[in-house]
Structure formats: structure tokens, C-alpha cells
Amino acid sequence: MTTGAYDNIILSHGSGGALTRSLIEDVFLKAFDNPLLRPLNDQAVLHIEPDAKTGARQRLAFTTDSYVISPIFFPGADIGKLAVCGTINDLAVGGAEALYLSASFIMEEGLPMADLKRVVRSMADTALAAGVRIVTGDTKVVERGKADRLFINTAGIGVLNGHALIPENISPGDAIIVSGTIGDHGVAVMTHRHGIAMDTPVISDCAALNGLVNDMLATGANVKAMRDATRGGVATALNEFAASAGCAMLICEDDIPVKNEVRGACELLGFEPLYLANEGKLVAVVENGHAKTLLESMRTHPLGKDAAIIGFVSTAPKGKVLLETTIGNKRILDMPAGELLPRIC
């Protein structure tokens, strides 16, 4: 019996028996096929080559993230693409080159097989394009109602080519760069939620940033730290920088790239673009003298064409982010207090 006989995931697909095996072979192995995954052992055995130039043992970076987005398909991407890009990006912004991913699937009984295949195909395509391999994984099926269709966990291993990019490197005077328009993902997902649905041409910016990061580091610019501005948005990434570095981040509202439609949707719902999630945008802090060269290089990459310098690192107020508003006054830009909810007031 093959999975082709089933239109939906049933509990037996998670039993560990023949049906599990056929699901793995027909759906996952078919899409992700590579020599490391193919033996379908309980573990993948990885070769990490010594540094080509120095011969030194390479340092590894290791990360994991879980993806529970609803809906699982949204304009511009899906949960699978998100799960691959998100983990690649978590490695990339630390200065590590992503090599291998694991992928674990928690499926709700009744998940349409076609949806699963579509997600898995999207993951395979994304991984291929980004030059990473999915080498191990797991599947579980839970009873209807115990999960929301499909949850994915990915872990990633990468090698550090240069120095690790950590916020402690940040010092006053550095420039702050964002790699493109902010809030696209947040608006694309949010405006398809029940109750606040609206029409926008905005699609998720979900993308693997490893190529852009490689280009950025290749310029030789002294990049101090980077962060992908996911949940909590650019405001959260900057607050984390400020807290870790013990500096102030001064940014200018008018310099922050935001699509018009994103601004419009934010006005309607009472949101701020700076708090909205991004899935293909990074915030970088770079030595001021290198900022222009870095920016020019970023703008030649398709994922960095709207990159902009949005502000500078300063000494006070220590640990805070200060926003110069569009009318010229300054205010503290906090972390969001919790879930973003539409406001009437």
C-alpha cells in the first residue's frame, strides 16, 4: 500500500509501521533525496571539512526553530518554505554558512495529503535553491484537534567562516542598516486572518538570506552584528541589540523602508510596521565608515535592493531604542508587549 491510496493523513501514518515507512519514502525522501538522507538511519553522519585555507577545524553553529503558522499557505510562501528559510537565516545572521537541516513534522490527523506534498515540495525547492540539504527528520501524527494541521521543526548546522557576529561587538557610532521593506510578512499573513481580512497586494518576504549575507561579508565591511527581524519585528531586533550592547539605537522613522500598502494596512488595524514580523529581512550593525560600501553591495542583491541606513548607535539612553518620528520628535521605541491585536482606539 502506498500513500497514494490516502487523500488524508490518518493516525496509522504515525504508527511507525509500514504506512509510516511508505509515507517517508513516497513523500519525504522523494522530495529531499540526497545521499546523507537516503539510508534513512536514525541519524545522519556529517562530514565537516577542515578550513580549506588554514586547515584548522571549523567551528560549527547549531540552531533550531519550530513553525506553527496559521494558515499554512499564505501569499508569497507557506509553512515549509518558512521552516527552511527561518533556520537558514538564524545561522546566516550569526555569520555561519548553513549546510545541513533536519526536519520534523507534527501532523494533525486528516491533513490533506496534497497539502503535505505541497509543503514538502516547497521545502525541497527552497533548500535546493539555498544550497542546503535536509539530511534527517521525523514524523508524528496526532489526533484531530491536537494540532493545527501541521507543525514543523527544523534544526540547522552551519560552519562559521569568519568571526561570530554578536551584538557585544556593537559600539557607538556604528550604522544600522535594514535590508529592505519591513512588515511585508506580517501584513501578508495577518490580512488573511479571520475577522481582519483585507485585500492587499502584499506578499510575504519569506526568503533565505544566506546569499545576501555571503555577499555582505565578502565586501570585507566590519559587520558587527546581524539579526533577522522575525517575530516582534525590527523594533524587537533593535531592542535586543541595545540591551546586549549596552548602547542606544537611534533610528529615523522617515528612513525606514515600508511599502505603501503595508502602511495602509497598519493604519487601518492600528499596527506599527516596526512591530510586524519579517521573514526575509535582516538588521545589520556595521562600522560607520564601511556602511556606504556595504549598502551599495547589498543593493545589487535582489533581496537587498531596498536596503537602507536607518540610524546609528549612540551612548544614551543606554539599552534603549530611540525613534525620531516623522514629525521630528523623539520617543522610546519599546518591545511589543504581547500579541498584536487590532485596535479600535
Binding site: T191, M198, D199, T200, P201, N260, E261, A265, E267, L268
Partner: peptide, 11 residues
Amino acid sequence: AVVDVAGARKT
């Protein structure tokens, strides 16, 4: 009504 705010449209 369908109302347009900077390209975002809401009923």
C-alpha cells in the same frame, strides 16, 4: 463599500 487606504482594501 470597498475602501482603499494606500493600496490596502477593506470592506
